[in-house]
Structures are given as C-alpha cells and as structure tokens.
Write a protein that binds this DNA or RNA. Structure first.
Length: 196
DNA sequence: TGAACGATTTCCT
DNA sequence: GGAAATCGTTCAA
C-alpha cells in the first residue's frame, strides 16, 4: 500500500519502525531498482543534537523543514550520498534515515552501480550503499515520494520483530536508542561506534 | 578567509 | 584494527 499523507505527518520515532519492510522503488532513465528497507534511524530536528537540523534551518537542511513525504538527500564525507524520508508536521525538521535494505528488483542495475564484484547481500547494506544502489544523488533532494521518481510502498503488515539500539556514527546524541532494524535480518549494516 | 569535521566506505596491514 | 579518500557545511577569527 502506498502510505496516505498522514502516515508521514507523525514524529520520526513513530514513522521509523513503520518503514521497516517498506519497499522503495527508484525509476530512473537507467532503469528500475527496488529495495526492501531493513534498517532505519530517526532524527528529531530541533531537540536532537545528532540531527543536521539541530542548529536551525540552513541551505543544506531546508528540505527537512519542508512538507513530510519528501526525500532529504545529503552529501557526506566528500563522496557519499545518503537519503532520508522527511516526516512530522511541516516546519518540524524530523526525518528518518534509510540505513540498509535488500535489493528485490533490478539487481543487475544495482550491481552495475555498486560494482560487479559486490555481493548481493552488500548491495544496499549501509546508508550510502543503499542510496548508490538506487541511483539516488543530490538531484533527487526534495523529491516527492507521492509523485516523483522515488516511490514507497508499505508492507501489508508491519515487521514481525523490531530491534532498537544506538544510532551509528554520531559524536553527539549517540546514546539515544533511535535506530531500528528487522530482528535477525541479514541485510543490516554493521554497527560501528562513533569515532572520536 | 581559513580550519575542522562529518548520519561512510573501502582497502591495507 | 587502522587509515585514506574527498569536499561541502559549519564555526571561529
């Protein structure tokens, strides 16, 4: 089922676990790739020291403050793209980072983007890997999930078992258990404690 | 105007 | 287990 607009108009902490099992499909000139989401992280704008929006609105994070149901794509470490689903009421800057998933359609294209030697299990296991497998870059920043080249489909029933834990790679706010993943899934990123 | 660092990945030892 | 790659954003001066 395609989620109703109201699905996204909730706090990130409520939307995040509901996204587990959802299928994200990118339809671009190169072809179509679909990924079943197995790991996410919640970011709660103004109150969250780990969020890009913690210090207020800026050119980069403007999309987070916009209407929910859109995609926030950012450039990281000078070489990687990562994608979020904007949620919460407009102006709240809440978002959910898609950290990992399983490629269930368009495996050939995903492998072409990621590299022929990459194992199928590793095609979208990690936030930057997931974005690369789907062909997501900055040009899709702000794209609307309802009408754009990216579409989201919710599972008939929510994930059976959900695990929670600390978020990955943050120097601040890392103690909050705002990471969610499908228990026992092999398509989950490897945890690494924040550097520093 | 400059310096530090990051919601990461990959390759090396 | 450790470090490099690489650049836009942010913060300090």
């Amino acid at each position: 089922m395609t989620p109703a607009p109201a699905f996204f108009t909730r706090p990130a902490l409520e939307v995040a676990p509901d996204l587990l099992g959802a299928v994200l499909t990118s339809t671009l000139p190169a072809g179509r790739v679909a990924v079943r989401v197995s790991e996410v992280e919640a970011y709660d704008g103004a109150n969250d020291p780990g969020s890009h929006a913690f210090r207020g609105r800026s050119t980069r994070n403007a999309v987070m403050f916009g209407p929910p149901g859109h995609v926030y794509v950012y450039f990281s470490y000078g070489m990687h793209w990562c994608m979020n689903v904007v949620c919460g009421a407009e102006g709240t800057a809440a978002a959910v980072l898609l950290r990992a998933g399983e490629v269930i359609d368009g495996v050939d294209l995903a492998q072409q983007r990621r590299g022929q030697c990459v194992a199928e299990r590793d095609l979208a296991r990690g936030p930057a890997r997931l974005a690369q497998a789907l062909g997501v870059t900055g040009v899709l920043n702000g794209a609307d999930l309802a009408t754009g080249r990216l579409r989201l489909r919710l599972p008939a029933t929510s994930a059976d078992h959900v695990s929670t834990g600390p978020r990955v790679g943050l120097s601040r706010g890392a103690e909050l258990p705002w990471r969610f993943w499908v228990s026992g899934s092999g398509f989950v990123s490897a945890y690494r404690a924040a550097a520093r």
